[in-house]
Amino acid sequence: MKGAVLSLNHIILNTDELQFQAWRELAMYEFGMGLPGKMAQSLAGLSRQQALQVVLQHFKQTDADEEALLKEQYEMYGKAIDGITDDQLLPNAKRLIINFYDHYVDLAVNDTDGYAHDILEKVNLDDYFNVVVDDNHTDNLYLKACEELSIEPADCIGIGTSQHEIQLMKDANILSVGVGDSKQISSADYQVTQVGDLRYAMLRKLWEDRQE
Results as ranks from 00 to 15, higher is better:
210 R>Q: 08
67 E>N: 13
187 S>Y: 00
46 L>P: 04
175 L>V: 02
133 V>H: 12
212 E>T: 00
21 Q>H: 06
49 Q>M: 03
93 A>D: 09
206 L>V: 02
54 V>R: 11
29 Y>M: 15
37 G>I: 07
124 N>R: 05
36 P>Y: 10
191 Q>V: 00
39 M>W: 06
70 L>C: 07
51 A>C: 06
102 D>P: 01
18 L>H: 12
135 D>G: 10
56 L>E: 04
199 R>K: 12
196 G>A: 12
46 L>H: 11
66 E>F: 03
60 K>A: 12
90 L>Y: 08
141 L>S: 14
81 I>V: 15
100 F>A: 06
86 D>I: 02
16 D>M: 05
38 K>W: 12
6 L>H: 13
5 V>D: 06
106 D>W: 04
69 L>C: 10
212 E>Q: 02
122 K>D: 04
149 L>S: 03
109 V>T: 12
124 N>L: 02
26 L>A: 10
112 T>Q: 04
83 G>N: 14
125 L>P: 01
79 K>N: 11
199 R>F: 07
73 Q>S: 14
52 L>H: 02
98 I>V: 12
82 D>S: 15
12 I>D: 09
133 V>N: 13
6 L>A: 09
154 A>Q: 09
171 D>G: 04
133 V>W: 12
97 I>D: 09
131 V>I: 14
191 Q>S: 11
124 N>Q: 07
9 N>Q: 06
65 D>S: 03
147 E>T: 06
76 M>N: 07
156 C>E: 08
145 A>V: 11
160 G>K: 09
114 G>F: 09
142 Y>T: 01
197 D>V: 01
177 V>Q: 11
112 T>M: 04
207 W>A: 02
14 N>C: 06
101 Y>Q: 12
104 Y>W: 04
24 R>I: 00
193 T>C: 12
15 T>S: 15
31 F>I: 05
20 F>D: 04
127 D>L: 14
50 Q>N: 10
60 K>T: 10
24 R>T: 11
121 E>W: 02
67 E>I: 08
100 F>E: 07
119 I>Q: 08
104 Y>K: 13
54 V>E: 12
8 L>S: 13
180 G>N: 13
165 E>V: 05
203 L>T: 00
173 N>H: 15
40 A>D: 08
93 A>G: 04
36 P>A: 11
50 Q>E: 15
27 A>M: 07
78 G>R: 15
20 F>V: 05
102 D>E: 14
190 Y>E: 04
98 I>N: 05
122 K>F: 01
11 I>C: 08
185 I>Q: 06
165 E>I: 03
156 C>P: 06
2 K>H: 05
120 L>A: 03
93 A>E: 09
108 A>I: 14
196 G>D: 08
206 L>E: 04
83 G>P: 00
3 G>P: 04
95 R>W: 00
150 S>D: 13
179 V>L: 13
57 Q>A: 09
82 D>V: 09
134 D>E: 11
42 S>G: 01
173 N>W: 01
113 D>V: 11
99 N>H: 06
39 M>P: 05
143 L>P: 01
156 C>F: 02
9 N>H: 07
159 I>H: 09
125 L>C: 05
148 E>F: 02
137 H>I: 04
195 V>G: 10
118 D>I: 03
191 Q>K: 15
136 N>D: 10
189 D>I: 00
174 I>H: 08
12 I>M: 09
167 Q>F: 01
84 I>W: 07
96 L>H: 10
